[in-house]
Design a protein around this nucleic acid. Structure first.
Length: 715
RNA sequence: GGGAGAUUAGCUCAGUUGGUAGAGCAACUCGUUUACACCGAGAAGGUCACAGGUUCGAGUCCUGUAUCUCCCACCA
């Protein structure tokens, strides 16, 4: 046995070893599976959900890194070609608005002052500069990512993948351009998809009135200003009160604007709400748009992109903001004695997730992905929606916890065509060109002069949806793609099940005819010790960088893993992290002690019966732990490790062997046992607490053995 | 309106296929002779939300109820 080194005479100090150890790992080249030693036939791949390029590490990213790193390290030690691909996301709207705000603050200029080219240059500079922050923070958590394969959702390779996918879907008739009602965010000046909407509960006044004295039916609405765009009044077909009016048409004057109203019957109308009659505004309500489809109604637009009134006969109204127009019309109703009731109600107002702007539904010419359209998919007629559902119902993809499968099916069933065009500059530009009414879609721009490219960019989820295979080289048929796709595990928070996971399934099954991943593991959100969401306004945010500095990265990682089952939210208080700092301390001291008592150790001997039985018990637990990790039960594996190391190994085994070594009673067997157990436990603890275990491994490894990170995890 | 989850010790939570209720933290007692800016030993603490049911046996499976949380949805 080696002399006890200087380092081991002191308490464990994470700061002094972590940076150096990470450097050793990175320089070893083992993060790249191509460099791993030994015969490795099976691959195991995880793609990292790319964090926003301009972001910083938060507890959510820390939990994701801790889980994925533990699993990839385990697989690496189990003999797999273990690949974990890093990357960052350009996060279109989020990044652009962040840079816009900053420029406006500093220079008082908006994006139109700068122009598209200059603005993009500035955003790119900012993004790349910002990227290093998040990458180095990922390193500090110990993440064993293969940096040689680093990708960015907006780099050239990914752009080629995006253009290729767009062209393929366009040719298959799955991407189309259409004038339809979309969710318009007047604040962000762009369309957004259904999933980017969050409804906010707000108080509103429900007004009940008649358009004019010439009209027989009273209607109720919270948005009187939209009524100048009405083309029908809808009632329930079985509503006795209105039966006789169905089919009638009226020419009326409403707030100085001529309107033509047809009374229609539609089952979408709720008899018991308001007056049971609904003013139909096809251009500014999604429900009404669909009703207009069913009844062939005209759809005049009366609100524009800036949420102002347009196109009206009454010039006083034109140009007014919707809120002002509402006041104007309510006053007009009162003056003309048409308003019969005002009632305060709470309603869900749709707002844009990113900007908080109130969504204004508008008819616009946009690009869509047709999810309900049948097409020929490798010889079968199928729709994208069915393809998405089949990937999960066939068990080709398994979701953990499985209750999310139900949520997934429900979502795919109710999916509508996905609006993919965005009126912002930062993102993948739509590969479509126009000239004299003609449309040209291809991977590259047309050679002739005079073609103008579509101004819009693609929804950011279009590019992240290709992530599992665009990172592996697609559309080229690369060796990586053959070796590592489908990936094995997709681990992320359950909040992006629809946004991201569903879209990856869509693109991968569509283009490659294979699932993007076999297993989905959804972790919960991190909350504070009282169970509240972490937010700036509550000032209860725990910064993983501070925690890792204060308690050591290993302690932080353990606190994020123990007791954190899939799908459940995790309450994290500093006490918990502190407890695992003590655990790290315990490991350190136990190792010191074992090494001290075995300094005169020469070679392994056969264990006496008593020691052998202790060892066999450990092997049983070892087997359990292995199976827990293999089945993604990290919360159980880590707990067992903690419990065995502390309660069994330290409190019982070391305590009882201590005296035997001093008194020289079957000393060699006791020493052999302690060393064996210490070594094997370091191996098992390593995926979860990589730093302290790698550091200690230096003192217990045998001649010829390398880094702990590539040491074989048996059994 | 629809769906999902949670409810176990004072607090935070485990409990994998049904087989005598577990851990950490806190509180209590004792001890610390050199692995431990701390550690060890011991004791205490639970009608497993409630009510039914299935079973030889239920924290675990089924039905219902209550409370809390989350997601989805076009009652204007």
């Amino acid at each position: 046995m080696k002399q006890l080194p200087e380092q081991l005479t002191k308490p464990y100090n994470p700061q002094s070893v972590e940076t150096e150890l990470y450097k050793t790992w990175e320089e070893s080249g083992y993060f790249n599976p191509d460099n791993l030693p030994g015969e490795r036939t099976e691959s195991f791949t995880i793609v990292l959900p790319p964090p926003n390029v301009t972001g910083t590490l938060h507890t959510g990213s820390a939990i994701m890194l801790a889980i994925q790193d533990s699993i990839i390290r385990f697989k690496r030690m189990r003999g797999y070609k273990a690949l974990w691909i890093p990357g960052t996301d350009h996060a279109a709207i989020a990044t652009q608005s962040k840079v816009e705000k900053e420029i406006y603050k500093k220079e008082g200029k908006n994006r139109h002052d700068l122009g598209r080219e200059e603005m993009l240059k500035r955003i790119n500079e900012f993004a790349l500069e910002s990227q290093n922050t998040i990458l180095s923070q990922m390193r500090s958590i110990g993440a064993s990512l293969d940096w040689s394969r680093l990708a960015f959702t907006l780099d050239e390779k990914r752009n080629l993948a995006v253009r290729t996918m767009f062209k393929k879907m366009y040719d298959d008739g799955l991407i189309y351009r259409g004038s339809r009602i979309v969710n318009w965010d007047p604040k962000g000046q762009t369309t957004i998809s259904d999933d980017e909407i969050v409804s906010e509960e707000r108080k509103a006044i429900l007004y009940t009135f008649k358009y004019s004295n010439d009209f027989p039916i009273a209607i109720s609405t919270t948005r009187p200003e939209t009524k100048v765009g009405d083309t029908a009044v809808a009632v329930h077909p079985e509503d006795e009160r209105y039966k006789d009016f169905i089919g009638n048409e009226y020419d009326l004057e409403f707030a100085g604007c001529p309107i033509h109203i047809k009374v229609i019957a539609d089952t979408a109308v709720e008899k018991d709400f308001g007056t049971g009659a609904l003013g139909v505004t096809p251009a500014h309500s999604i429900t009404d748009w669909e009703m207009a489809d069913r009844h062939s109604l005209p759809r005049p637009q009366v609100i524009n992109e800036y949420a102002k009134m347009v196109g009206l006969k009454n010039e006083e109204l034109n140009g007014k903001r919707v809120t002002d127009a509402r006041e104007y019309i309510v006053n007009w109703l009162k003056e003309n004695n048409l308003l019969t009731n005002e009632e305060e109600i709470t309603q869900n107002v749709p707002t844009a997730e990113r900007t908080g702007g109130v969504i204004e539904p508008l008819p616009k010419l946009q690009w869509f992905i047709a999810v309900n359209k049948s097409f020929n998919h490798f010889g079968n007629e199928i729709t994208l929606k069915k393809l998405m559902a089949a990937a999960v119902s066939s068990k080709a993809i398994n979701i953990l916890p499985d209750r999310f499968e139900k949520v997934y099916f429900h979502w795919t069933e109710n999916l509508r065509d996905w609006c993919i065009s965005r009126q912002i500059w930062y993102g993948h530009r739509i590969p479509v060109w126009y000239k004299e009414g003609k449309i040209y879609c291809d991977i590259n721009s047309p050679k002739e002069e005079g073609w103008e490219q579509d101004e819009d960019t693609l929804d950011t989820w279009f590019s992240s949806g290709l992530w599992t295979f665009s990172t592996l080289g697609w559309p080229d048929q690369t060796k990586d793609l053959k070796t590592y796709h489908p990936t094995d595990l997709l681990e992320t928070g359950h909040d992006i099940l629809f946004f991201w996971i569903a879209r990856m399934i869509l693109f991968s099954t569509y283009a490659l005819n294979e699932v993007p991943f076999k297993q989905v593991y959804l972790h919960g959100l991190v909350r504070d010790a009282k169970g509240r969401k972490m937010s700036k306004s509550l000032d209860n945010i725990l910064d993983p960088r501070d925690l890792s500095e204060k308690y050591g990265t290993d302690a932080l990682r353990m606190s994020l893993l123990v007791g954190n089952g899939p799908g459940n939210d995790l309450k994290l208080g500093e006490d918990k992290i502190k407890a695992y700092k003590l655990f790290a301390n315990k490991i350190w001291n136990a190792a010191r002690f074992v090494l001290e008592r075995t300094q005169d150790f020469e070679k392994e001997v056969n264990l006496i019966e008593e020691d052998q039985s202790v060892y066999e018990t450990w092997r049983e637990i070892h087997k359990d732990i292995t199976s827990d990790v293999e089945n993604y039960r990290l919360h159980l594996a880590t707990e067992k490790i903690y419990d065995y190391f502390w309660k069994v190994f330290c409190d019982e085994i070391i305590e009882t062997r201590k005296t035997r070594i001093l008194d020289d009673i079957d000393k060699a067997s006791a020493q052999t046992l302690l060393l064996k157990l210490l070594r094997e436990q370091l191996i098992v603890v390593h995926p979860f607490m990589p730093f302290i275990t790698e550091e200690l491994w230096k003192y217990v490894k045998k001649d010829g053995e390398g880094l702990l990170m590539i040491t074989n995890w048996n059994g």
